[in-house]
């Protein structure tokens, strides 16, 4: 879990390195999405009728897991309810986070490879930008969470940024799809 070790000076240089790595991840995805010619092709759709249906439901699962993540973090950091919750909460937090990431990968892959980074519509531009931001912030958060002596605010700020980015991503994709195209749309 997060380490802001009491009495140990915060390692700001290390944090800065992690933030730069996260920024490079965001930038790389954005550049790839921009310079790569969108294929317009579908990927596997599995149980679903098409790739887009798979994507909106995978994104929804990732978003629900992210909500659970925030609630669990709030609980074991003592901001929700009394005490810090059961001991298994930390592991549940990490497992749900890993699962959310795994669900997000095929979605992001299809977005980048098939659609690319587009700026024609506000919704699409916001979605693409927050998609890049999400993976960069997630990278920095994962690096920081396992490193000792990080500034105390680093983890909540980055965790909040990851969750905010995923929320915007879900609103501009799955929520938009459910409310304007079809629901449940499997």
């Amino acid at each position: 879990m997060a380490q802001a070790v009491a009495g140990q000076p915060a390692n700001r240089t290390k944090m800065l390195v992690f933030l730069v790595i996260g920024a490079l991840v965001s930038l790389s995805l954005g550049v790839y999405g921009r310079v790569h010619d969108p294929t317009g092709d579908s990927l596997v759709s599995g149980f679903f009728t098409s790739s887009i249906n798979l994507k909106v439901w995978f994104a929804t699962v990732a978003f629900v897991l992210a909500i659970a993540q925030v609630l669990m973090a709030a609980r074991f950091y003592g901001h929700l309810g009394h005490g810090r919750g059961p001991r298994w909460l930390g592991r549940a937090h990490r497992i749900s986070g890993t699962l959310a990431f795994l669900f997000a990968i095929p979605v992001a892959y299809h977005c980048l490879w098939s659609l690319g980074y587009q700026s024609g519509q506000a919704r699409v531009l916001i979605h693409g930008t927050f998609g890049c931001l999400f993976f960069g912030a997630l990278t920095a958060k994962v690096l920081i969470v396992r490193s000792p002596a990080m500034p105390k605010l680093a983890l909540p700020v980055l965790g909040g940024l990851v969750f905010t980015a995923l929320t915007v991503l879900w609103l501009t994709s799955a929520f938009w799809f459910f409310t304007t195209v079809q629901f449940p749309g499997v």
Binding site: R94, I95, T98, F101, L102, I105, V142, R146
Partner: peptide, 11 residues
């Protein structure tokens, strides 16, 4: 933790 990190890295 090692398993979680391996899964993240593999992803």
């Amino acid at each position: 933790n090692a398993i979680v990190e391996l899964v993240l890295l593999a992803g």
